[in-house]
């Protein structure tokens, strides 16, 4: 993809709750795989997708793999643009404090930890989406 040196802006839009369907896990795997191609990657969590980042997920009871801790590795994969839809949180009676904190380490500043999370309105999201080269919806 980047053989010709062109970096494209990729956005992954996550709209489903985890575990009920396979979309959340599939999206995460695709994101981690494509992270190897040195593109400009961002992730959006909107609609029921905001539930993917809920703190305190315990999956022993449903016998499925708990992949919620994998989101914390995104920073290591240099994915540090995470957009959370504010209205989606509000409709669900949630706030940022219900979600995991996601950070990345800035190598240029002695590995200082910085937040990857941006709380945005739908109007802002629309603008950000418009500026992408590729948008993949899950």
């Amino acid at each position: 993809m980047s053989e010709d040196g062109v970096v494209k802006k990729f956005m992954y839009v996550n709209r489903k709750s985890p575990y009920g369907t396979i979309y959340a896990l599939e999206s995460l795997e695709v994101v981690l795989i494509t992270a190897a191609f040195d593109q400009d990657v961002s992730l959006t969590f909107t609609d029921d997708g905001v539930y993917q980042l809920m703190k305190g997920q315990q999956t022993e009871g449903i016998g499925m793999k708990n992949f919620s801790s994998t989101y914390s590795a995104l920073g290591d994969y240099e994915i540090n643009k995470i957009f959370i839809d504010k209205e989606s949180l509000e409709e669900r009676g949630l706030s940022l404090s219900d979600l995991q904190e996601l950070v990345w380490e800035d190598e240029d500043e002695d590995y200082a930890e910085k937040s990857s999370i941006n709380l945005v309105s739908r109007a802002e999201l629309s603008e950000i989406m418009n500026n992408q080269d590729v948008v993949l919806s899950f």
Partner: peptide
């Protein structure tokens, strides 16, 4: 169903 609440990090108090 409790296990489905717990899996999603949804508090029983809520």
């Amino acid at each position: 169903l409790k296990p489905d609440l717990e899996a999603r990090g949804l508090s029983l108090n809520n």
